[in-house]
Design a protein around this nucleic acid. Structure first.
Lengths: 215, 215
DNA sequence: CGATAAAAACAGCCTTGCTTGTTTGCAAGA
DNA sequence: TCTTGCAAACAAGCAAGGCTGTTTTTATCG
């Protein structure tokens, strides 16, 4: 509508479109099949615009991934605050994490992880953002630990195990597709395990219908 | 030594060298950086030899991965037999699985998983071999269940959780490197959890020094 | 305020290097 | 000799990065 936009606005908007497109394509067609032309086309700009904003293909991908992780970290902090305020259950946390990871986050991660493993610069640029992401996770589990009066160190172990389990589950969906029951039951099992470590409110079994929504 | 080899021998040997080189390169430099020239050079043959044995790049990689999984499945069955014969502990199984996955298996898997996700033919060719691999796993845990008198279904759940956990742990090593203590303690935690489900021999705590060898 | 210069955002082409699959040539074993 | 295993040159496509030209916004000056 507003025809005249400042340069900063134009620039930020184009960058954002490019980064969001990059994540879309990483998820939909994989990192190897995603060319800079694809990214520009999907964002509705020229390849020239892309090279104007990002020095190289590696740079677009790196920036896009960092952006995605930052955004997710912010979401985590918001959830932690909310969780702390109303006092949720550990089951809820497991569900939230599964949904977050299954909602593209870890599928996109699986795309760039090999690149990170073999490209030292790429990996080094990423690590700070990953730490930021983990701080978001910490916030959630710290909230739970405070509520259940659990030891922080042990809480962190359970948190890390949960993250690893979910990562592994999503990896498996690639070569074991179309089996929602399998993943739901694994998640159910895991919630039981976690509950052991945070023995809070028995919670009326009537409303136990918060089963995991899978895929 | 033996100068004269039959054609079959020559052929099989060259194929084996090519497949083994492919796995080496997938692990060392990643799937995207691995060209057919690289594979041939590493195997000490010409690119012509490679194309003689495999129709395409995709074919070499697919065959190499299938070969790797088959071999690992055979190892699993051997371990299961041995385990059954002498009656080992659940800790031992967790250690064995970690070592197996950390010894290149899952690093290589991380390389081809994205390809499998986006290439239907590649994935379809792989799935039978993956099932074969899982049969090997089943053999081990069935042995344990029989020994501990546990319910097979529940055993399978613990097994699947273990596999997912280890997959996730190895994924994490990429962006959280050089922290063996972290991975060792997670594994330690998990062994405790698994032990709960298979309450067998308390085992003299004197020889509890079978801690995980990490990386 | 209006014109104009400068800078930034953007478009599109072009070249180069790399990789893959194909084809041709040759030697070793059946 | 005839097939099979391998070597090496060949052909073609593609994608990334670099380069040049155009439009839009911002700054400067009369």
């Amino acid at each position: 509508m507003n025809k005249r936009r400042s340069q900063k606005e134009r620039s930020a908007e184009t960058s954002a479109k490019l980064m969001s497109s990059t994540i879309d394509l990483l998820h939909d067609q994989g990192i190897t099949r995603t060319t800079t032309s694809d990214i520009a086309r999907h964002a509705g700009v020229s390849r020239g615009a892309l090279t104007h904003h990002f020095a190289s293909r590696e740079a677009v991908i790196g920036a896009s991934v960092a952006e995605m992780l930052s955004k997710t970290a912010r979401d985590l902090h918001r959830f932690a605050e909310d969780f702390m305020a109303r006092g949720g259950s550990s089951d809820e946390i497991v569900d939230y994490i599964w949904q977050m990871m299954d909602d593209r986050l870890f599928y996109v991660t699986m795309e760039f992880l090999p690149e990170a493993r073999h490209n030292d610069d790429f990996r080094a640029d990423l690590i700070p953002t990953v730490r930021e992401f983990h701080a978001g996770l910490d916030a959630i589990w710290t909230a739970l630990a405070a509520r259940a009066g659990a030891e922080p160190n042990h809480t962190r172990t359970v948190m890390n195990a949960t993250m690893c389990l979910v990562r592994g589950m999503i990896s498996q969906t690639v070569l074991r597709p179309d089996d929602p029951v399998y993943y739901a039951s694994l998640l159910q099992f895991w919630k039981g395990q976690v509950r052991q470590h945070f023995p809070i409110e028995p919670a009326e079994p009537a409303s136990a219908g918060s089963a995991a929504r899978i895929r």
